[in-house]
Design a binder for these strands. Structure first.
Lengths: 172, 172
DNA sequence: TATTGTTATACTCTATAACTATA
DNA sequence: TATAGTTATAGAGTATAACAATA
């Protein structure tokens, strides 16, 4: 079992075949599941902080980004795309509408449905939010060199592919 | 801007220098922050499901693991170690005590404090929980070969080192 | 009869304050 | 006066059910 040194931390190297000694506890910092979860919650929280000055939460960013590619969709379709219930989508659209970022218009094919459209203001704000997201991404991987960054994004995409999660959908 | 193919997905390669065209939205699946957050929430949720049959939640696993290395600590110190408020620690200890996994004993140095000790049952259950965590880790990285697994764990540890999070502490 | 959007409600989680007993 | 543990409460967030309009 290899010992690795990372700055002032000493951790056990990751092992796929597990120690048979029950007394040896794998430290959380050597567990890939823990590391991903820890970093994921941190990244999510940090991103939320960064978006706050724009009056947005991560879910708003996700929906606005989706709408920029699929404008005029019904709320039910948007809910499906984001992996949430349509009831929850009502509130998100409400918030965006209050901020003047989307408009509910009549759907051309179905009078029950609302066609959700981005406003010009939303396009402007989204450009700014993209910059914030770029900064966020760059800060996250600031410690990595160019080759490591490419490795990381490829590894994460491979992992994401092999979960049963739809692409681009965030749990909860 | 390179196009990458992953199974039935086509994504834009990650770029550190951002497109200056505001109309070009970086897809979420090409954002390292989104990928980490998505995988983190998924991993956390999945781990919680795996622990359910043992009657444990991830926070219980974290605390039991910590106690296996630092038995007999006061609740305040445990709360500090896990990065939560002492008020929240009361509930977690309550749950573990109900399940017969820890005992609150009198602290040798401070009569205000409780020394929290693992029971024999906890040691047995922790062995089982470690196996569950090992399975969880292995499933997460099942799509990677041996070299990629080593790369991933090293990259994640490097990222974790450069956040302001204490080692082994999970946000919220 | 099924579906879209909406509202109301209940349930869980979390954060804060306040109390007691000790230091 | 400060700290350890506890309890109570309020707030946010989430999930579910039920309703009106339309398909």
């Amino acid at each position: 079992m290899a010992i690795q040194h990372y700055g002032n931390r000493v951790i056990l190297a990751y092992m796929t075949d597990v120690s048979t000694d029950p007394a040896v506890m794998t430290p959380l910092t050597a567990r890939v599941g823990f590391l991903i979860s820890q970093l994921g919650f941190y990244a999510s929280e940090r991103f939320a902080q960064r978006l706050t000055p724009l009056g947005l939460a991560p879910r708003h960013f996700g929906l606005l980004t989706h709408l920029s590619l699929h404008d005029g969709q019904a709320q039910q379709r948007l809910a499906d795309a984001m992996g949430i219930h349509r009831n929850a989508m009502v509130g998100i659209i409400d918030e965006l509408e209050e901020r003047g970022l989307v408009r509910r218009q009549r759907h051309p094919d179905d009078r029950r449905a609302h066609a959700v459209h981005l406003t010009d203001h939303a396009h402007d704000l989204l450009t700014e939010a993209q910059r914030v997201a770029d900064e966020h991404d760059n800060d996250l991987i600031a410690a990595l060199d160019e080759q490591q960054r490419e490795q990381l994004i490829e590894l994460l995409q491979t992992l994401a592919m092999h979960t049963d999660l739809p692409a681009g959908v965030h749990p909860t």
